[in-house]
Design a protein around this nucleic acid. Structure first.
Lengths: 205, 205
DNA sequence: CCGCTAACCTAGTGATCGTTAGGTTAAGCG
DNA sequence: CGCTTAACCTAACGATCACTAGGTTAGCGG
């Protein structure tokens, strides 16, 4: 009759290292659900099974915590994208495989997707952190475009914008349509984006 | 030695109607620059040449003002997109013309672009307002896709997501690269997106 | 079993901001 | 020229929230 309504199970003391990890995970969830500005420290602390001041024993500020969340998520995402990249197959296969790995990661980390692509903030520092994190991740796309494009740098930039935005949009759309199987997303992305890349592939490759 | 640093010229009384318009325009700017949460009512009022309480003589709340800003901007955008749509030319020409009109509008309303595509907010009501406004606008894209696509509804949805996200991303990218001429944006969008549409055009059209 | 460290707590503080109360004055109309 | 209205003001309220001060206790090392 008196169970807690939220997830904060038996309430034990924890080593600093473990507590830190719990906080980062809770913060990822809350940032994803409510955005940076909408995520109160108290709520993150509560879901981590502690009170707010304890959070400040582990992180110097909300912004620092956010940066850590972004770094962790983008590291995971980049790793997923790059895993299938070293093989010697033709470009289309590599692109398809990378798309599949990318969406597989999105599927695995469903709840954190809005953190990566949609977190809303008016805070200058948090905005900058997002821009930095996004730039690092976007550079993973470059091989598919720069290896292939010979004409113009601006065209490259715009094509990267289009590809990145499309993947972002599909991931968020998937978030609202969880029943759709991954292969549908991969096929849609491949169908829509590959022609734009293919038309630029020099006959050599 | 004592000129105002910001734009709030000679400070006269104004008719309610005119003041309302001034407020909407100031609000558009401030929302675009700082997001919904980051835009203080005081700042919007100051740029409108009044104090904050006067704003509440014209709008019942910050949210209502935001909704009005969104409605006005999306109405303009939709109008720009639809103007060139009734002609009987082939689909590719119509698509190209619509893209050009769309980017022309973006160029004309530079400062308001982030309001349409990037405003950050943790406020539930403002989020909902954005979703509603976006949905209305996105439906303008449908004719290019549904007229053309025969196979599957989910594919249609995903293609619309991709097109809308690409245009949004290009508009925001343009915002950071204002020296690039419009035709470059139009060509980039056409090159990248048309193949995905063309591949689905039934031989009849 | 005892003491010390570090994991944890309650109770603020100060800043920001949406919104309201209540009054002042400009300007159109008779 | 006065009078009324509505455009405008200053001042403050109350809520939220990041962050801090200062104390309490669990649990491990000796």
């Amino acid at each position: 009759m008196s169970r807690e309504p939220e997830a904060a199970p038996p309430k034990r003391r924890m080593s600093a290292e473990k507590r830190r990890a719990v906080i980062v995970e809770s913060a990822t969830e809350v940032f994803a659900e409510r955005g940076y500005d909408g995520a109160p420290i108290d709520e993150i602390a509560r879901r981590s099974g502690i009170s707010a001041p304890v959070l400040y024993d582990h992180f110097p500020s909300k912004l620092a915590l956010f940066q850590e969340v972004l770094a962790a998520e983008y590291a995971r995402l980049r790793a997923a994208w790059e895993v299938t990249f070293a093989t010697g197959e033709p470009l289309r296969q590599r692109f398809a495989a990378s798309l599949d790995a990318w969406f597989a990661h999105v599927e695995r980390r469903r709840k954190s997707i809005p953190v990566l692509f949609q977190v809303a903030t008016a805070d200058e520092g948090a905005r900058q952190a997002q821009v930095d994190a996004t730039r690092a991740s976007r550079s993973a796309l470059a091989p598919f475009v720069t290896d292939v494009l010979t004409t113009d740098e601006l065209d490259t930039e715009m094509l990267i914008e289009i590809i990145a935005a499309s993947l972002r949009a599909l991931a968020l759309w998937w978030h609202d349509h969880p029943a759709v199987p991954r292969v549908r997303l991969v096929d849609a992305a491949l169908d829509a984006l590959w022609p734009a890349i293919e038309r630029r592939v020099p006959p050599s490759s």
